[in-house]
């Protein structure tokens, strides 16, 4: 239960420039409070071993996602449902503040929040991932690696994971004489929705979107809000030891939807172009 870990150090000059720009409602890279950095999405970057993959860059933050679809025994309480797991990993190459070893609590939170966004939105219809009830189901693994860290990992991991899922395919099976047989052909995953994560941070009384690493470090509170295609809120997580007022939360919930629409289009376009 670490309360203090190796922290990113924000030097006084950087801090000053962030604060003075913020007072003019600008960021250090001159974008507005509610502007994302440039988002670059590329699909099918790891063709040979994965069933689907994607690379997402938000500014200097870069993450890679790979999908593996395997078969497994179903859980006894859900014999006709497939299994899905989403895991995020901080590579030691991603930042001088990351060390190899078992995941720390920030990484566990990152993993669990990304998993929750995909799971709660019902993006994958797990009932269609059943091959033979009680015996064999698909098991979808979404693994996301953080290659370079410059803040807002929550969104980057979510975009990479969902983009890779959209692009992924899996083997087809039939049952002949009670025996499961794998077919030559492949099919797309049963995708029902595209959840979009948006992350906000609070510095002083200013709410900003898509914080970079320095902004994230000095922010008092962070909020990730995930919306689905129908404009419903499917998952949220507040982080950092500070808070938001009710008014701020309501404001964020409106912006999250608008930004979500834009980014959803961007992801769909990237998947279509890649295919």
């Amino acid at each position: 239960m670490p309360a203090v870990k190796k922290h990113r150090i924000v030097d006084a000059i950087t801090l000053d420039s962030i604060m003075s720009k913020l007072s003019d409602s600008k960021r250090t890279d001159d974008r507005g409070l509610l502007d994302y950095r440039k988002i670059e999405i590329e699909t099918n970057i790891l063709k040979d071993k994965t069933n689907g993959s994607a690379k997402v860059k938000i500014g200097d933050t870069e993450v890679w996602a790979g999908i593996k679809v395997e078969t497994a025994n179903p859980f006894p309480d859900t014999p006709a449902e497939g299994v899905m797991t989403c895991n995020a990993e901080m590579l030691p190459i991603s930042s001088q503040y990351v060390e190899p070893g078992p995941p720390d609590e920030d990484t566990i939170e990152l993993s669990r929040v990304s998993d929750r966004g995909i799971r709660e939105s019902g993006m994958i219809d797990v009932s269609e991932l059943c091959i033979k009830e009680g015996e064999l189901v698909y098991s979808v693994y979404i693994d996301v690696a953080v290659i370079n860290e410059d803040g807002n990992l929550f969104d980057a991991v979510a975009y990479a994971g969902t983009t890779a899922l959209l692009q992924a395919d899996m083997s087809k099976f039939t049952i002949e004489n009670d025996e499961v047989k794998m077919l030559e052909e492949r099919e797309k995953l049963p995708i029902k929705s595209l959840p979009i994560s948006t992350t906000f941070a609070k510095i002083g009384d200013k709410i900003i979107i898509d914080p970079n690493a320095d902004e994230q470090e000095i922010a008092t509170a962070r909020l990730t809000l995930v919306t689905d295609e129908n404009g419903k809120y499917v998952s949220a997580q507040k982080g950092k030891p500070g808070g938001f007022t009710f008014e701020e939360l309501k404001e964020i919930s409106v912006i999250s939807k608008e930004k979500g629409e834009e980014i959803r289009k961007m992801i769909k376009e990237a998947v279509n172009n890649g295919a």
């Binding site: 909020l223 809000l225 689905d228 809120y233 499917v234 998952s235 030891p241 808070g243």
Partner: peptide
Amino acid sequence: ITLFQLDGNLSK
């Protein structure tokens, strides 16, 4: 508000 989490499906 110092803890805020959500999972599920809510309209505005």
